[in-house]
Design a protein around this nucleic acid. Structure first.
Length: 855
RNA sequence: GGGCGCGUAGCUCAGUGGGAGAGCGCUCGCUUCACACGCGAGAGGUCGCUGGUUCGAAACCAGCCGCGCCCACCA
């Protein structure tokens, strides 16, 4: 260690992450450790594709948690010497990004329509160039060891090529088709969205009952609806075929109030005879159920609500009104005509757009769809055969249930920002061309071609992320070396939206599942248990946490609080991480500033050395196993407990005298232990461990590429563990005894030993001067703690000692009674495993003998 | 309507058949030469309720109460 380094270590009594992290990160980048050569096979390599954040996004707690988990495994495998690639990139996020830029435009008093498509898209690109790298920089703050030199974007030239190839192939297979169909229309983004982007919310509406007169009769059929304005698009009335009340009406017609259209009365079992009067108005153009019924009965499909959420020309005198205005107007008109029979409050669930938050307007429109059944089959089989392992296991069933019920996917979006659908139409002869590149002219008539206006759903391009980022469809070295990837971590909310689709496309295109494991992690909620969300104002900014506590602290905290169930964000866990970083720093100072100049090596001379080495190796085995099984919370908490309790509280305190004497054996052992602890913790706390490592005399290169420790079972030592644990137990009992007997903290009490001698450290750490029992002479002990007989002294308050003895006696009485009762139970003795009974007997013996000592 | 999960110390959470745990908070004592973001010692819980299985239940089973999430086309 240089003089400067020594001075810095001596002077810096607290770890300051802010002074370390940026410097250390740039060293890693300069080292090129995160940029592997495209060599080797996927089996021997390790690769992960990051869930691509939106280019519009800022790092939120979900990214931070997800990133901490991925980085832990990525770093561990890199340290194991595997060629490791963590693919980084961003998602163009069609709706979100377009919305952001449109908002900017509006602030300037302009619209995208005024600008025109080309100029608008140009403008979004400029926005992306300026702000799109923000989230990438934020991942660096977290310490994420992604390959920043291979950053990808879903609208990269190469990526677009992959998207078009996929579209074309699915079209050629007949999976992709265009159809007039019922879609979820989002008036907010003025686009169709998929079923998965819709969320249902409970809403209080009014339920209106409306009389529809039966043609050529005095009778009326009363229908109930929460959306009276859609009656303008009614094309039938349905009753249940079993419903005798209306049986004679089937085949006749109703007259639609306000409009006058003749509506056939049809029979359909979908109608619940128990609900209302048992008659259902059928609006195939604006209700998903009615759409199904309409197609079944060949009913006319009328659309009265347009893409802007306003009534169309089809709505006659109501044209131009918004849906809400139209509802009031229709209700008023019905009331005037005496057709409104009832209006009552009604709570039901209503679809809302997950993108814009607006209420979904179901309507029929011309869209592109992808049939999913065929793609789903092999993806179901892959999960069933555990070729893709979904952990925790309960999510496998959720995945399978959804896949088995999978429905066609509406892939077209009425946006400008995205992959423009690679379809060209000839207006002259109505030919359609699907191609990866624009055809020159119509092959049939030579006419001009016009490209489809719509773009693809953002998730269509994310669905091919793991292989499109590696250069597919070209057989690139990257694809050969790193596909399939090793695992995926994800929040469950995108299990269907993203994960399932990647599995389907992975099998269909490169021909292999895209990752071996899918780890579905928990959700970190706000401190009060609500969702963290920008709109609720409940979000906690990970960057601010990093500013205050450091990236290591946040990473530790997130991993420690994560588990299989959702948890509230815990400031205490982040603080625990911060405390741990500081403790690592200080414990390392103690070692590094005091050791002799020796090579690190396990050189045990005392039982506590063997104990420490045994505990270290066991911890390495256990923590490693937990990381490999995605049990991050227990992994980091176990590492914490080992380091803090075993290493700092006990081992360092025990060996301090030897360390201060510069004993070579303990110096070598301590350097060895420190090296392994730093390496073990590096995947979860990379900055502080790398920084400390820079002071370690054995350092040859960065810790980021230092070998990850492999547990040496040869150092496991049960006997040493038992002996030292007993010594620790005795030390604690002696300290407790002192405390409760009101002994001054600093005083050293005299004692003699009677029985098996404990490890040497006990007397020093408990502040007892323990001599071997001398035959005969000497004062009578005032108390016994295990084999230690406490001798009288000026620092001992007789009354306090007596009180302490009495308290201990009561404790032992209770224990003896409990054990006796248990052993008196014949069922226990007969049926419990022998070792359990034996253990109980041993305890009883111990308690009785201690009680005897006290009396 | 179906499915999944949760209810353990003041708070946030571990713990899946053999004597209730962690971190934070709280109390008491320590400027002990790595760290006061520290050290030592404590207090604090009839493990949501009721039954059952078992020699033994926080854990397994059933029912109930409370809470959360996902899926679902009943107006």
């Amino acid at each position: 260690m240089s003089g400067g380094d020594r001075k810095r270590l001596e002077d810096t009594t607290r770890y300051h992450p802010a002074e370390v992290e940026a410097r250390v990160f740039s060293e890693w980048l300069e080292g090129g450790y995160f940029h592997p050569a495209a060599e080797g096979t996927p089996e021997e390599n390790f690769s992960v594709a990051i869930p691509p954040p939106n280019v519009t996004g800022a790092l939120h707690m979900g990214h931070a948690l997800n990133g901490s988990m991925q980085d832990a495994l990525v770093r561990m495998n890199r340290m194991r010497g595997r060629n490791t690639l963590w693919i980084l990139g961003t998602d163009h996020a069609g709706i979100a990004t377009q919305a952001v830029v449109e908002k900017d435009l509006r602030a300037e008093g302009r619209t995208r329509q005024e600008l025109g498509r080309e100029a608008f898209v140009e403008r979004v690109w400029r926005w992306k160039e300026e702000y799109g790298s923000r989230i990438v920089e934020q991942y660096k703050r977290l310490g994420a060891s992604c390959d920043y030199e291979r950053e990808r974007f879903t609208l990269d030239e190469g990526y677009v090529k992959a998207v078009y190839r996929v579209f074309k192939q699915l079209y050629d297979k007949g999976y992709i088709y265009r159809d007039f169909y019922m879609v979820n229309w989002d008036p907010g983004s003025r686009s169709a969205i998929s079923d998965l982007e819709v969320e249902n919310r409970e809403v209080e509406d009014a339920l209106y009952s409306i009389d529809y007169p039966v043609e050529g009769s005095e009778r009326v059929l009363t229908v109930a609806t929460v959306r009276p304005e859609t009656m303008l698009a009614d094309t039938a009335v349905a009753v249940n075929p079993e419903d005798e009340r209306h049986a004679d009406l089937v085949g006749r017609h109703c007259l639609l109030p306000l409009v006058g259209r003749r509506l056939p009365i049809v029979a359909d079992e979908h109608v619940d005879p128990e609900f209302g009067t048992g008659a259902l108005k059928i609006t195939p153009g604006h209700d998903p159920n009615d759409f199904e019924i309409g197609r079944k009965h060949g009913l006319e499909e009328i659309v009265v609500i347009g893409p802007d959420g306003r009534l169309t020309e089809q709505a006659g005198r109501f044209a131009g009104l918004t849906a809400a205005e139209a509802q009031r107007a229709v209700v008023a008109a019905l009331r005037e005509e005496g057709r409104l029979r009832a209006e009552e409050p009604y709570t039901h669930s209503v679809p809302f757009s997950h993108r814009s938050g607006e209420r979904i307007e179901p309507l029929i429109s011309l869209q592109w769809f992808c049939r999913m059944d065929e793609l789903a089959q092999p993806a179901i089989a892959a999960a069933q055969r555990d070729e893709v392992r979904i952990v925790p296991g309960q999510w496998k069933r959720v995945y399978l249930d959804w896949m088995r019920e999978i429905r066609p996917w509406c892939v077209s979006r009425q946006l400008w920002w995205g992959h423009r659908i690679p379809v060209w139409y000839c207006d002259a002869c109505e030919e359609t061309y699907v191609a990866e590149a624009a055809p020159e002219r119509c092959g049939a008539c030579g006419g001009e071609l016009r490209q489809e206006e719509d773009v693809l759903d953002t998730w269509f391009s994310s669905a091919i992320w793991p292989f499109a980022t590696l250069g597919w469809p070209d057989q690139t070295p990257e694809l050969r070396a790193f596909y399939p990837t090793s695992f995926l971590t994800t929040a469950r909310e995108i299990l269907f939206l993203w994960v399932a689709r990647m599995i389907m496309t992975g099998i269909e295109f490169p021909g292999a599942v895209p990752f071996r494991d899918v780890y579905v992690h928990s959700v970190i909620q706000a401190r009060d248990g609500r969702r963290m969300s920008k709109s609720l104002g409940t979000g906690i900014d990970p960057l601010q946490e990093i500013d205050v506590h450091g990236a290591d602290a946040l990473r530790f905290g997130l991993l420690a609080m994560s588990s299989t169930q959702d948890v509230r964000f815990s400031d205490a866990k982040v603080q625990q991480g911060s405390d741990l970083a500081n403790k690592l720093w200080n414990a390392s100072r103690l070692v590094l500033l005091n050791v002799a100049e020796v090579e690190p090596a396990p050189r045990p001379v005392a039982v506590e050395d063997r104990w420490m080495l045994s505990r270290l190796e066991r911890t390495i085995a256990s923590v490693t196993g937990k990381l490999e099984n995605y049990d991050f919370a227990h992994a980091v908490q176990e590492a914490y407990a080992f380091f803090w309790r075993d290493l700092c509280d006990w081992y360092l305190e025990i060996v301090k005298p030897r360390l201060y004497e510069r004993e070579e054996e303990v110096s070598a052992t301590l350097l060895h232990v420190l090296e392994r602890v730093l390496a073990l913790l590096h995947p979860t706390m990379p900055f502080v461990t790398e920084e400390i490592w820079s002071f370690h005399p054995a350092r040859r290169g960065h810790l980021a590429v230092h070998p990850f420790p492999v547990a040496d079972e040869g150092l496991f030592d049960e006997a040493a563990e038992a002996e030292v644990e007993a010594g620790i137990g005795l030390t604690q009992r002696l300290r407790a005894w002192r405390d409760l007997a009101d002994v001054p903290a600093g005083s050293v009490l005299a004692a003699v030993l009677d029985g098996v001698s404990p490890p040497d450290f006990v007397g020093r750490l408990a502040r007892f001067d323990i001599a071997d029992a001398m035959a005969g002479a000497g004062p009578d002990p005032v108390a016994s703690v295990g084999p230690v007989r406490v001798l009288p002294s000026a620092d001992l308050d007789a009354e306090a000692v007596a009180g302490r003895l009495e308290a201990r006696r009561r404790e032992l009485d209770a224990e003896v009674e409990r054990a006796e009762r248990k052993l008196a139970n014949r069922g226990f003795v007969a049926k419990a495993p022998a070792e359990v009974v034996e253990e109980e007997r041993a305890k009883l013996t111990r308690y009785r003998s201690e009680l005897e000592e006290l009396s």
